[in-house]
Amino acid sequence: MLPFVIAAGASLVQSWFVPAPSASVPAVPAPSAGSPGPEPAPAPDLPRTPSPTDPADPTGQVRRSGTLVMTDYTAYDLDSKAANWSPTGDDWGPDRDVAYASRWADADGDAVIGRKDPKYVALLSGGGPWQRADCVHAPYSEPSARPVGDRLTQGRAICVVTSAKRYALLVVTGKAPGQLTVRVTVWQ
């Protein structure tokens, strides 16, 4: 076995062992004068380091679930275990994951805004039931997946990547002037 090391970023290095090359590897014929040469071999399936948008475990256990009544211009910490999801008005803060606004500058009407909007928030298509894997593969940062305006109707689902790199699913259950009610599921 030979060591195989991949460096990803300045602070993360991952290594594992791969089999040593075999002495009985078949020879690849040399390309003829007019041909482009042999096709490159496909890359081996190597283990990957989990990231917020591509974790190794797409199932996970539910950490917390409940109902959240999001009020106008208030941010919430979906990693919090506080009964009210630790709301803060007019102060985003480093741990706040999602907020609701009845008017948003680049939206036609109201919006659900994520941390580093729209990098960590995405509207899901379809009618559910949704699972953590749907949030793992959600179209984060895509303009067509922004949870804004008439997309925020009862039964629609929104995925959020939290500040602690967990996945949260918000399903709209009600809407009134200045507030949006969602059923929240946060996975480990």
Rank of each mutant, 00 (worst) to 15 (best):
P58C: 06
P38F: 06
A157H: 02
G126M: 03
S32V: 11
P31I: 07
P36G: 15
G109V: 08
V161Q: 06
H137S: 15
S102R: 07
W85A: 06
A99W: 05
S22P: 01
M70H: 10
D117G: 13
G178C: 08
W104L: 07
D108K: 14
S51T: 15
V28M: 04
R146V: 02
V171K: 11
K175Y: 07
S144N: 10
L68P: 02
A23M: 05
A83H: 09
S144R: 12
S51N: 09
V160C: 00
D150W: 00
A107C: 11
L78R: 03
A8V: 14
P177H: 06
D106M: 14
L12P: 04
K165V: 12
G155Q: 06
R48P: 02
T59Y: 05
D110F: 01
D95V: 05
T185Y: 02
L12W: 08
G114H: 04
K116I: 10
D110V: 00
A7P: 08
T67G: 00
T59C: 02
K119P: 06
D79V: 14
P143I: 09
Y167E: 06
E39T: 13
T173G: 00
L46F: 13
M1W: 04
A75M: 06
L124H: 00
V25E: 10
A111P: 10
G34A: 11
V13Y: 02
A101V: 10
E39W: 07
A138G: 10
P38R: 09
G37S: 10
S125N: 09
T71E: 09
V18E: 07
D57K: 03
C135G: 08
Y76C: 03
A23W: 13
T185M: 02
G60W: 00
L152R: 01
V5Y: 04
A10K: 13
L170E: 00
R166Y: 08
Y100W: 14
L46C: 10
L180H: 03
S80C: 03
K175C: 05
L124D: 00
K119R: 14
H137K: 13
T185C: 10
S24V: 05
T53I: 11
P29F: 06
T74Q: 07
L68V: 03
Q154M: 11
T162F: 02
G127S: 14
P40T: 08
P129C: 07
A133M: 10
R64F: 11
G93I: 07
T185P: 02
P143Q: 12
P55T: 01
G114S: 07
P47W: 03
T53G: 07
S141N: 15
V98E: 04
G66Q: 03
A138Q: 13
